[in-house]
Computed example of a mutant assay.
Amino acid sequence: VPAMAARVIKCALALVVAVGVPAVVGQQDYAEQMESLAQRHAGDMRASARADPEGQRREAMAQQMLSDMLRDVSAMLDHGSPTAKEAAVARLLQMAVQSSSGSMFHPTTFRNAAIRSGVVPKIIKLMAAGNDHAKYLGAGALQALALDDPTTTLDNGHQAAICQMGAVPVLVAMLKQGSGGGRAAARSEGVYEFLQTSAASALGTLAEAEACRRLIVAAGAVEPLVAIAMFGSDQTKLAAIGALDMLQFNAADVKAQVSSAGANSLLKGLTQYGSDVLRESAADVLAGLNAPAKALSAEQRGEAVKELRLRNMDRREQLMEQARILYGGVQTPFKVTNPNARTESVEYMLN
């Protein structure tokens, strides 16, 4: 696994691992695209394996193992108890981390297979109907599947596909969670902030795709992101600022909407009174809001948002390192779900 790709995935998942479905639009077109990419990737693997019989055997074993694991996750999401469904999503997250750490399957292979397996709509359904822990894990899983390997184009369509499958409304709803009664009691446990942080992080990753950016803005994400950046913890502020940064990039209409929501005064305040990491992030977003939009090709935009992601990733690493030094790590209000828990018999359900 290329070092940069592994670093992108591990950093984006670090915070999450520490702890009715909307209509599908255009899924058939995406399925055809993914099938083409999968065939291309498989062709490359077969060509390599022909010169290495042992490599061919290992590749076949890895593909079968990945298929079986995703089948288990999918079955648990279909038939498991609420706790078992959460464990299934946690297992998917664990697989994402393992794929970035030199496991038997490459991160791109894993994400391609996961998207094609049909687990994404099931995760979104669980998030829409489940408890806070399910939403938290689900947002992390969606972000894990939305990440792309900067060294290849084989997984560049995942973000748009996840948005087309209905992820945006449930993530935007998580941003707004806690705005009603009972907020003070819940905030004492940090639940809402962690939900908002995970949702903002996922939306920031999805917004790299132009199609997702439009859906996220249309769903009303800008105002709650500005509010979160104003009142949240440093981790939450950084996630919200990163999402706003991606949404406003080279988009005159979104720049105006972000400014109208009060972001300019907020960002100016953070450049003066925030932590070093927040000051840098706020200054960059403020500069972006004041920069005129330019005519960019799809390739130029893709390269630019990739740079934004890497910059935001570096700052998230800095903030998490500070939390590790000061507090021993990022603490969450959720109990860790055991990804290996088997409260239901997967084998029985599949037979």
Results as ranks from 00 to 15, higher is better:
3 A>M: 03
5 A>N: 01
5 A>T: 04
5 A>W: 02
10 K>S: 03
14 A>F: 05
20 G>P: 14
23 A>N: 04
23 A>W: 01
25 V>H: 00
29 D>F: 00
44 D>C: 06
50 R>N: 12
51 A>M: 07
55 G>P: 08
71 R>A: 15
74 S>R: 15
75 A>H: 13
82 P>C: 06
85 K>G: 09
88 A>I: 11
93 L>H: 08
95 M>E: 10
101 S>I: 04
104 M>V: 02
111 R>Y: 06
115 I>M: 00
116 R>Y: 02
119 V>S: 08
121 P>Q: 13
122 K>N: 04
125 K>S: 15
126 L>R: 10
128 A>W: 02
130 G>L: 11
130 G>R: 11
134 A>H: 06
151 T>H: 07
151 T>D: 10
155 D>R: 13
156 N>T: 04
160 A>Y: 01
170 V>W: 03
171 L>V: 07
175 L>Q: 12
178 G>M: 02
189 E>G: 14
192 Y>E: 10
193 E>I: 05
193 E>L: 12
194 F>Y: 12
208 E>V: 15
208 E>P: 03
215 L>E: 09
219 A>Y: 02
219 A>S: 06
221 A>D: 01
224 P>S: 14
232 G>C: 09
245 D>P: 03
246 M>I: 13
255 K>G: 01
261 A>I: 00
263 A>Q: 02
280 E>M: 14
285 V>M: 10
289 L>G: 00
301 R>H: 15
303 E>G: 10
321 E>R: 14
322 Q>G: 01
322 Q>I: 05
323 A>S: 08
337 T>C: 12
